[in-house]
């Protein structure tokens, strides 16, 4: 597509995981999700909005999240809300454990040298 695809599936997988985790707290629309991730990570993780929507639609195609247009409580307009499906919950659990294993592995490599 003429863009740098060097991010690869690892980063794509992480983005998926972050989205699923965010939705675990409850339904949200796209803007909410990106803002939540930004705020929770204290501005470290800033989702490029151009990756957010493709990711959301990809997750929806896989059946891990579902979407619906709903009326916002405060405003007089509809937004598209995404929610986690049961399959998505299972996927989140799997991804989380995979991520933990990866994080521990990296941590043990990076640990300062202790006793020999």
């Amino acid at each position: 597509m003429g863009r740098d695809t060097a991010r690869g599936s690892m980063l794509q997988g992480m983005l998926d995981m972050l989205i699923l985790r965010t939705l675990q707290y409850g339904p949200a629309h796209g803007h909410d999700i990106s803002r939540h991730i930004r705020q929770t990570s204290k501005d470290v993780l800033q989702i490029e909005h151009g990756s957010l929507y493709p990711a959301l639609h990809r997750l929806e195609r896989r059946g891990w999240i579902a979407s619906k247009w709903e009326r916002h409580a405060a405003r007089k307009r509809e937004f598209r809300y995404y929610r986690l499906t049961p399959a998505g919950r299972r996927q989140l659990a799997a991804e989380t454990s995979r991520w933990r294993t990866l994080a521990e592995a990296i941590a043990s490599v990076m640990r300062p040298a202790e006793e020999h």
Binding site: M1, R3, E48, H49, G50, S51, Y53, P54, A55, H57, R58, R61
Partner: peptide, 17 residues
Amino acid sequence: AFGNPQLVREDTREAWG
């Protein structure tokens, strides 16, 4: 901040298969 909307549209369409 949003990026190129056209590219977003195209990438999303990609995701649809």
